[in-house]
Write a protein that binds this DNA or RNA. Structure first.
Length: 190
DNA sequence: TGCACGATGAAC
DNA sequence: TTCATCGTGCAC
């Protein structure tokens, strides 16, 4: 962990270099921070989904390495940002060792500072944080755009559900790989 | 070069 | 429940 401007402590590489489901659960309660020189936007992560690797049929890496998903195959702790439905961006944090293409999708934030508009849902989250594909590959352990230490969520407060919008993924669609903080009003689909 | 398909969101 | 909208990946 490294101190960052504003007194926040950034999560460092080893945090992301672990089992994807553990990283997903541990990201709940952490702070997503983005500073662009003039303003700082901060949101508390309250909903995530784990995409555990090539064997996971809902994970982009299950269809092999492509130009779009190359960031997932790189080292952990980087932002994997892609566009869906031609109009929305989704933000993921790359997990596990380089070459193991897995990531955690950030689905909802709790408003903390500098955010405008709804933050429930992966597309809205990116819009409120000003995130687009130019940030694909950005190192989340560096300055400007990172995830910082936060109060976390107790295991009893973490709800496990199937992921959203992956019905095509066969048995993987039923796995409980979506996690959110119980009762939090910013969760996209309680 | 063409086309089917979304890890969504907003409207009806 | 329907549809907008377009980058990506792969078939041809």
């Amino acid at each position: 962990m490294k101190a960052a401007p504003g007194g926040m402590t950034r999560l460092s590489r080893p945090f992301y270099d672990r089992d994807t489901m553990e990283v997903a659960r541990d990201l709940l309660g952490k702070f997503l921070v983005r500073s662009d020189g003039t303003a700082t936007r901060i949101g508390r992560i309250v909903e995530v989904e784990a995409y555990v690797g090539p064997e996971d049929l809902a994970c982009h890496s299950s269809k092999g390495r492509t130009e779009r998903n190359r960031t997932m195959f790189g080292p952990p702790g980087h932002a994997y940002v892609y566009m869906v439905y031609g109009m929305h961006c989704c933000l993921n944090a790359v997990t596990e060792a380089e070459g193991h293409a897995s990531a955690v999708l950030l689905r909802a934030l709790e408003l903390v500072a500098g955010l405008e508009g709804p933050v429930n849902g992966p597309g809205r989250l990116c819009r409120a944080m000003g995130i687009d594909r130019r940030l694909d590959g950005h190192d989340l352990t560096g300055d400007g755009f990172y995830i910082a230490e936060g109060p976390g969520a107790s295991p009893a407060a973490i709800v496990k559900r199937p992921r959203i919008g992956v019905d095509y993924a066969g048995r993987w669609a039923k796995r409980l790989l979506r996690f959110y903080i119980r009762g939090n009003p910013f969760v996209s689909r309680p």
